[in-house]
Amino acid sequence: MIEIRFHGRGGQGAVTSVELLALAAIEEGKYAQGFPSFGPERRGAPVLAFSRVDDKPIKLRCKIVKPDVVVVLDASLLAIQKPANDLKEGGIIILNTNKSAAEIRQEYGYTHTLALVDANKVAREVLGVPIVNTTMIGALLRATGVVQVETMEPPLKERFGPLAVKNFNALKVAYEQTTIEERRS
C-alpha cells in the first residue's frame, strides 16, 4: 500500500486531487481511497487530503499519519505544517517550487528524496490560472508511478468537462518538467 498526503490551501484543489487519483487507481483494477481532512472548508486555510492505493482491499479508516509521499501544493506550507516531519524513512517530498533541490535542502534540512516542479508557472501557462492540483498530480506520477498518466484522462474528463484537455496537458507538462533528486544518506 502507498499512502499519499496532500498539503494545500482551501481552493487549491487538494481534495479533487485525491479523488481523481482514487478514481484512476480503481479504473486500473486497484483498490484506493481518496478523502479530505474533514471540516468546514475555508478558502486559503491549510488543508490536508489523503490517498491510499493498494492491490488488496483497504481497511484503514483513519488519517494518514506516516505517509510514504507528501505532495505540497503551496511551498508556504512547509514552514507552517512541517509536512515532512512524519514522513516514512525512504519517503518522497513532492513540492511546488521554483527553487532548486539544493536550496530546499539548505532551507529545510530535508534528506528525503525530492521531486520538484514549478507548478505555479505550469498552471499559469497551460491553464491560465494558478490552480495547481492537476499539475501536481503530474509530478506525483513522475515520482511514484502510482497510476499511469493515461489513466488520469477519463476522471479528468468526467470532472472538468471541456476544461479537462487543459488540465490533462498541465499534468503532462508537469510530468515532463519534474526533477527528482534521490535522498541524501
Partner: peptide
C-alpha cells in the same frame, strides 16, 4: 454509515 469517514470517501 459513518459520516465523513464513509460518506465523503471515494473508493471502489
Amino acid at each position: 454509515l459513518d459520516g465523513f469517514i464513509l460518506t465523503h470517501v471515494v473508493e471502489a
